[in-house]
Write a protein that binds this DNA or RNA. Structure first.
Length: 484
DNA sequence: TTTTGAGTTGTTCGA
DNA sequence: GTCGAACAACTCAAA
């Protein structure tokens, strides 16, 4: 005798709390079958990179454990997704399939096909908003078009938004009479064969519990100084919630609720300001999803037409030096090595290294986006795309072309004691503060005392920033209508 | 329809 | 050392 069941198709929502699809299945009654289907080629060309796969493995493991505690299990299958869902629903008298939406163009298309395939089958399919404060199609300006400028977008959202209370965490799920087969998590081979993930492992605690712990820690220790310390890469001044948000181990709605609670408890103008500065970052996440939804070609194409003829360099040796953290600019190299080691980079440093690749080296933002995609544990198509287009100046609402970060002054301003640089570039550790961001200018005696031999133990700068800046300004001005 | 004001995160130069 | 202005042109949003 088969029991009637609902499938809950887990995707980028690896949590039990505040999960609309899961709640819908519970509400419907009958058994709940939690399913994860691994089908990376359906996300092509943005299938999860190495760091993301590592995180995904840990998250699934954590979700398995959480489900076990509430009388349930995670069924793991491989794609093609449609076939996997059809097979499961055939074998287990499935009445409904529920999932939370994703917004990547390839996923939207695939999900639409899946919905289509089940229509008329007698199986209900329903998707929910489990990742955003507002669905992208509900936000538009007065002429009915999507916003392209952040400030206007976020002002509009703040005025209209009333995020609901987060949904509860289920205590117990109804099981089927008999569990479907499941693959072993290890058989998905998400973890790297070569052991390069140890640095990531020691930096992070993936999963829903890790997410909550991180949020609590941030609210308790870092939010009060957020406006200032978020820019200092040697301190834990940022929220570090990005990977949790990407994998749906935490929702913006939960963050919103936690912040509101805290603001109500404290209520000082200062705390409200710090909270709003942080919430603006959540606003950027919303904005990036809004843009990706309305301009689905964004991951590959510049939003501004005229950038299609930008003279990017093909410079594999520059790209490689940047990737390896061997550019000769300490703050850039420190950032790239932090990324490689921990799967994450401080936001301030992301801007610096991105500006360096795009403006000093004149290498296309797409190359940068691809590298970040493979190495970041928080790699998110919407956020990564907007971040790079913003830096390159080819988004509608972008950094002005003349804003070229100076890697030395940025380093001296935001890492004045060189703690960050010394941590990730230990060969520079013994240089005095004064020279730690510009070793090539240090007196030879000092270099020797610090055990540093330029071009042997640490590279000379691969480009001269002052000259590179001039070249970049020239290249960018070639885009203006007057000149061309 | 036309007009106006504004636009995340900077740097440099010269007074 | 500090401060304000210049750095383009363009597009978006809203009046």
């Amino acid at each position: 005798m088969k029991t009637s069941a609902s499938l809950v198709w887990f995707r980028s929502d690896l949590r039990l709390s505040d999960n609309p699809a899961l709640q819908a299945a519970i509400k419907r009654g009958g058994a709940v079958l939690p399913v994860f289907i691994y089908a990376p080629n359906e996300e092509d060309p943005w299938a999860p990179g190495g760091a993301s796969r590592w995180w995904l493995h840990q998250s699934l493991k954590s979700l398995q454990a959480s489900l076990l505690k509430i009388n349930s299990r995670l069924i793991i299958r491989r794609g093609p997704t449609l076939e996997a869902l059809q097979e499961l629903s055939r074998d287990y008298k499935t009445e409904a399939i529920f999932w939370n939406r994703r917004y990547e163009p390839a996923i939207i298309k695939r999900d639409a096909k899946i919905k289509e395939a089940f229509s008329g089958s007698g199986i209900l399919t329903e998707s929910f908003n489990g990742a955003l404060l507002n669905e992208p199609w509900t936000i538009h300006n007065q002429s009915g078009k999507p916003f392209q400028v952040f400030t206007a977008f976020w002002r509009h959202c703040l005025a209209k938004m009333q995020p609901a209370e987060p949904l509860p965490t289920p205590r117990k799920l109804a099981r089927p009479n008999r569990w479907p087969n499941s693959l072993l998590l290890d058989s998905l081979e998400l973890e790297p064969r070569i052991k390069w993930a140890e640095g990531i492992r020691s930096a992070w605690r993936p999963g829903e519990l890790g997410a909550r712990a991180q949020l609590d820690h941030f609210l308790k220790y870092s939010l009060s100084g957020y406006g200032e310390t978020r820019n200092l890469p040697d301190r834990p001044g940022t929220s570090r919630l990005s990977p949790y948000l990407h994998f749906g181990e935490m929702t913006p709605r939960q963050i919103w609720a936690a912040m509101r609670e805290k603001a109500e408890a404290e209520g000082t103008p200062q705390s409200v300001w710090q909270a709003s500065t942080f919430l603006t970052e959540i606003g950027w996440r919303e904005f990036s999803h809004h843009l990706l939804f309305h301009f689905p070609h964004m991951p590959e194409m510049p939003l501004r037409e005229n950038f299609k003829r930008f003279p990017w360099r093909k410079a594999p040796e520059f790209l490689r030096a940047w990737q390896k953290g061997l550019t000769g600019y300490p703050i850039v190299d420190a950032g790239m090595r932090e990324l490689w080691t921990t799967g994450w980079m401080h936001n301030r440093v992301r801007m610096i290294v991105a500006s360096f690749l795009v403006k000093d080296l004149l290498v296309s933002w797409l190359e940068g986006a691809r590298w970040f995609w493979d190495t970041l544990v928080d790699a998110d198509l919407a956020q990564n795309t907007l971040g790079w287009q913003w830096t390159a100046g080819c988004a509608a609402d972008a950094a002005p072309y003349f804003r070229v970060f100076n890697p030395v002054s940025q380093g001296e301003k935001f890492d004045p004691q060189g703690n960050y640089v010394r941590k990730w570039c230990p060969e520079l550790a013994r240089l005095p503060d004064k020279w730690v961001h510009r070793p090539w200018e240090a007196p030879p005696m000092l270099l020797e005392e610090a055990g540093l031999e330029l071009d042997r133990t640490y590279p000379e700068p691969i480009v001269n920033h002052t000259i590179a800046r001039e070249v970049a300004l020239e290249a960018f001005s070639s885009l203006s209508a007057k000149q061309r």
